[in-house]
């Protein structure tokens, strides 16, 4: 059984893709402890069973809103085999912001580049192959409302489940210096060893309450770590 999570901004056609993948075989419940709807479903592709969880629609992965926290916790702790990141092609810049954060989490991502028709109408010409190469992530163009690209997406999910990829994102040198520094401290002190160290480093730099609490580290420690850079 391959476990797949669907992530994406609100209004990108996430539930259309969820329905297209799972058909009628779905179950609606609540995320544990909170009253946010949780949709789950299963499908079979080439004799492999896939279990799909539809994460709440989110713009980022901070711990500020319940929805973002649910999505983040699920990816970090539930460790799904594949995360399908649904990106609205007609609004690609804003949508890739979440993609960057998913990459920081080293999730095994497949991008469904949805609403390709709308993007074209808006005058965007997207070189899908190049985008895939730049990101280091498989990118499948889709028009979910018309069912275009769903088979290809299923295939890409299957392939991704076989070869676990850990995407790597490198930001500008200015900020990477800090990330690297904190990362080395994290590895040195084996802080939250179950999470990707780069992700923990970024979250500590962002003074993320949740991660700081889990790591048992406060802002002062982080400040001290990075003081040597400046």
């Amino acid at each position: 059984m391959i476990r797949v999570a669907l992530a994406g901004n609100p209004n990108v056609g996430k539930s259309v893709i969820f329905n297209a993948l799972t058909g009628m075989r779905q179950k609606i419940g609540n995320w544990p402890g909170v009253t946010v709807e949780k949709k789950e479903g299963v499908y079979k592709y080439r004799d492999v069973e896939f279990h799909v969880v539809d994460l709440p629609g989110i713009y980022g992965l901070t711990a500020h809103s319940i929805d973002e926290k649910i999505a983040r916790d699920y990816i970090l702790k539930g460790k799904p085999d594949v995360v399908v990141d649904i990106v609205d092609a007609s609004n690609i810049e804003r949508n890739l912001y979440l993609t960057m954060q998913l990459m920081e989490m080293e999730a095994n991502i497949v991008i469904a580049l949805n609403k390709m028709d709308l993007a074209e109408q808006k005058g965007y010409k997207i070189d899908v192959r190049k985008l895939s190469k730049e990101l280091g992530i498989p990118v499948i163009p889709t028009i979910a409302v018309k069912g275009v690209g769903i088979e290809e997406l299923k295939n890409a999910i299957l392939q991704a489940s076989k070869v676990k990829r850990e995407p790597y994102v490198r930001y500008s040198d200015g900020i990477e210096r800090y990330i690297e520094l904190v990362k080395s401290k994290i590895i040195e002190n084996s802080i939250l060893p179950n999470y990707p160290p780069k992700f923990v480093a970024i979250k500590l730099l962002e003074f993320d309450d949740e991660i700081m609490r889990e790591a048992g580290i406060d802002g002062e420690v982080v400040e001290k770590w990075i003081s040597s850079v400046s």
């Binding site: 005058g123 997207i126 070189d127 730049e134 962002e206």
Partner: peptide, 26 residues
């Protein structure tokens, strides 16, 4: 760092989108 990282992410996105997306003014 919250805003520094946001800027860094958008810089990266701008870089990628610049290479892969062409915009025809409509």
């Amino acid at each position: 760092f919250v805003s520094e990282l946001a800027v860094a992410r958008y810089e990266k996105i701008g870089e990628i989108v610049g290479k892969c997306v062409e915009r025809v003014e409509k």
